[in-house]
């Protein structure tokens, strides 16, 4: 991408989004710098997951502007006018952004290795041999080298989520989005996933993370954003926000989850 090093990788300005009559996002401003780990917290129904899905255009926005890697998401500026992206342009844009879902969403008809190697082969046209080799290496990296041949239903939730992370990494994304990656897991399986994510953060990956894991946010994140009622209530350094919340709503929320 042609963006300068100083420009944030992700910038959102005044993002609005409604589902029917209910307005879920009411003007969200947000930015993530290169190599930053940004955590978004907030009560359920606050719009945090919807906002994350807007970042890779899984949801369209009604108003505002989202720029990723220096390009407007969903539109190309042509002189004075914005032209809406074609479906193939959306697809090309999403190649560069990894996403990890709450319910893993591994492809049930493929083994762990096929899940990881599938998109590089079909989308990036990597040779099958290279993609499988790379897939093996990625599965090793998330600690699942011995499970490459297994189908999702033969893996635990924690293992599935680690395969899902490897699958997203296989496309060499410039940003990784995590949508409550540990909320669907049994408590004893949460750590193995957080461990992998910590490794990514240390490795310098730009990450946007919607989560309820306050401990992880405090330890690993560079910034913490509290969202409620479709707006950003408060954001800053995680220790600062968690120790000295300035807004009443932030205090209330933190008193319930801490």
């Amino acid at each position: 991408m042609t963006s300068t090093e100083n420009e944030p990788v992700v910038i959102a300005e005044g993002v609005r989004k409604s589902f029917g009559d209910s307005e879920v996002l009411r003007g969200v401003d947000f930015a993530v710098a290169h190599g930053e780990v940004a955590c978004i917290i907030g009560p359920s129904g606050s719009g945090k997951s919807t906002f994350l899905r807007c970042l890779n255009a899984l949801e369209s926005i009604d108003a505002g502007r989202i720029r990723v890697n220096g390009a407007d998401v969903g539109y190309t500026l042509r002189g004075e006018m914005f032209r809406e992206w074609r479906l193939t342009e959306f697809a090309a844009f999403r190649r560069d952004i990894g996403m990890v879902f709450q319910h893993f969403n591994l492809f049930n008809n493929m083994t762990a290795l096929e899940n990881v190697a599938c998109a590089p082969i079909k989308v990036k046209r990597t040779s099958k041999r290279d993609a499988r080799e790379r897939g093996h290496a990625l599965l090793e990296r998330v600690g699942l080298g011995a499970h490459a041949h297994k189908y999702p239903s033969q893996l635990s939730g924690g293992q599935q989520q680690r395969v899902a992370i490897a699958r997203a990494l296989a496309m060499d994304p410039s940003v990784m989005l995590f949508d409550e990656p540990t909320s669907g897991l049994d408590p004893e399986l949460v750590d193995e996933v957080l461990e992998v994510m910590k490794g990514l953060a240390v490795g310098g990956m730009t990450m946007v993370l919607v989560t309820h894991e306050i401990g992880f946010a405090r330890e690993v994140a560079d910034s913490l954003t509290f969202v409620d009622g479709g707006v950003v209530v408060e954001s800053g350094a995680p220790r600062e926000v968690l120790a000295n919340p300035k807004h009443e709503r932030t205090k209330q929320f933190l008193s319930k989850v801490l």
Binding site: A91, R95, F101, H103
Partner: peptide, 12 residues
């Protein structure tokens, strides 16, 4: 979720 995951990987 299956199609969303496929979308997020850049599939048409």
């Amino acid at each position: 979720g299956q199609s969303e995951a496929a979308s997020s990987l850049g599939m048409t």
